[in-house]
Amino acid sequence: MDCLFEILCWNVRGLNDPAKRDAVRVFVASLRVSIICLQETRLNVIDDFLVMQCLGPSFDGYVYLPAIETRGGILLAWNKSLVNIERVSFDSHTVTGEVVPRDNNRWWLTTVYGPQTHEEKIDFLWELAERRSLCPGLWCLLGDFNMILYAEEKNNDRLDRFIMSRFRQFVLEHEVKDLYLQGRRFTWSNEREVPTLSRIDRAMVSVDWDLMHPDAILQALSSSVSDHAPIHHSLSAAFRPKRRFKFESFWLNLEGFDEALREAWVCDPGIVDPFRRLDALFRNAAEYFQAWGERKLGNIKLKIAMANTLILRFDVAQESRRLSQAEAWLRKVLKLVVLGLASLQRTIAR
């Protein structure tokens, strides 16, 4: 699982202005992201100096799709100390690469800047379908699609229902999930007094990608210096507060407890204040016994899940053939293991 893995996706509406570059860099610095996908850069050439100006020194890996004159352009950048992107390919409106996190659970990322005209949008959806056929497996695509899926994603009734239908057809045919957007209904405004609002920026993922990242969350942030809201995609967003130490009474009955207690109940001899000394003793003992208890018992839930997975394999196998003597014995032992671990888990919960 990716640790604190976050992606920023943003249509910045041009990076030609030095003031805009500074604003983007400040915004990026306020987040902890590993990958940045910027659309509509309006730049024909991007070099190391410009990436440094816009994103800071951490993003030492990047590729880009040049703008056509002053239209379009995509910049995909990443922090090499956290992740790498390999096997990069370019299409008319997308940049795709294979993301290689530190845990090596690889997946495909496609960043999108969709076209404006009706005819180009039809070609663009064909282009996406072709790219998907060349990149099987876990897939995440995100960016400014310049189209919507449903009527409620726009605040007026000026809709291209044919394109909406084709977009939904693409989603169904390729079995991608449109991620729920937290906190906002729309991601783009035409910035007029009576604005047109729509959700044209989004992230979609394949089913297997979604299963690998069950804690992922998608948020729309402040549009800041653009008319598009940045999309902040966190792949491990579940809130996990630091677990408080709890002394388990059954530890008293485990082999080696007395020796562990002697090793745990120590502190720096230089601490002479009795209250600080007692505080240090308790802190050291808590840290020691937390690790000692995990070494003794391991992760009970994980062990139960592993045992049940093997039992299921044997259950399925015996529907089509007779289990060998060793398989039947192991299946029986695993059932006893599950019973014992479940009982222990209940004891701990009490």
Results as ranks from 00 to 15, higher is better:
residue 339 L to V: 02
residue 143 G to E: 12
residue 199 R to T: 00
residue 125 L to A: 08
residue 309 T to M: 12
residue 344 L to G: 08
residue 350 R to I: 07
residue 99 V to W: 09
residue 216 A to Q: 14
residue 246 K to V: 09
residue 135 C to W: 06
residue 337 V to N: 06
residue 41 T to V: 05
residue 282 F to H: 10
residue 178 D to Y: 02
residue 160 D to I: 06
residue 133 S to K: 15
residue 284 N to W: 02
residue 29 A to G: 02
residue 15 L to K: 07
residue 189 S to K: 07
residue 23 A to V: 01
residue 266 V to R: 14
residue 38 L to H: 05
residue 140 C to T: 09
residue 27 F to R: 05
residue 297 L to W: 00
residue 65 L to S: 15
residue 248 E to W: 14
residue 328 A to T: 03
residue 332 K to P: 00
residue 182 Q to M: 11
residue 325 Q to W: 01
residue 70 T to E: 05
residue 273 D to A: 10
residue 244 R to I: 06
residue 196 T to H: 03
residue 291 A to H: 12
residue 300 I to V: 15
residue 93 H to S: 02
residue 268 D to S: 13
residue 2 D to F: 11
residue 154 K to Q: 04
residue 229 A to F: 10
residue 113 Y to S: 09
residue 154 K to T: 03
residue 180 Y to D: 08
residue 249 S to T: 09
residue 201 D to M: 01
residue 294 E to H: 12
residue 135 C to Q: 13
residue 135 C to M: 14
residue 339 L to D: 12
residue 109 L to A: 09
residue 266 V to S: 07
residue 324 S to W: 06
residue 270 G to F: 05
residue 253 N to H: 11
residue 7 I to Q: 01
residue 263 E to A: 13
residue 277 R to M: 13
residue 241 P to H: 06
residue 26 V to H: 04
residue 132 R to A: 11
residue 300 I to A: 06
residue 84 N to Y: 03
residue 120 E to V: 01
residue 60 D to V: 04
residue 102 R to M: 15
residue 226 S to M: 02
residue 329 W to Q: 14
residue 241 P to G: 10
residue 238 A to M: 04
residue 349 A to H: 15
residue 186 F to T: 07
residue 27 F to G: 10
residue 329 W to A: 14
residue 94 T to Q: 09
residue 81 S to T: 12
residue 215 D to N: 10
residue 82 L to I: 08
residue 164 M to R: 13
residue 300 I to S: 02
residue 31 L to C: 12
residue 171 V to S: 05
residue 164 M to P: 09
residue 237 A to S: 14
residue 24 V to Y: 02
residue 306 M to A: 14
residue 42 R to A: 04
residue 224 S to A: 15
residue 247 F to H: 03
residue 30 S to F: 00
residue 26 V to C: 13
residue 339 L to K: 11
residue 72 G to P: 01
residue 109 L to E: 07
residue 83 V to M: 02
residue 213 H to C: 13
residue 301 K to W: 03
residue 272 V to E: 11
residue 132 R to C: 14
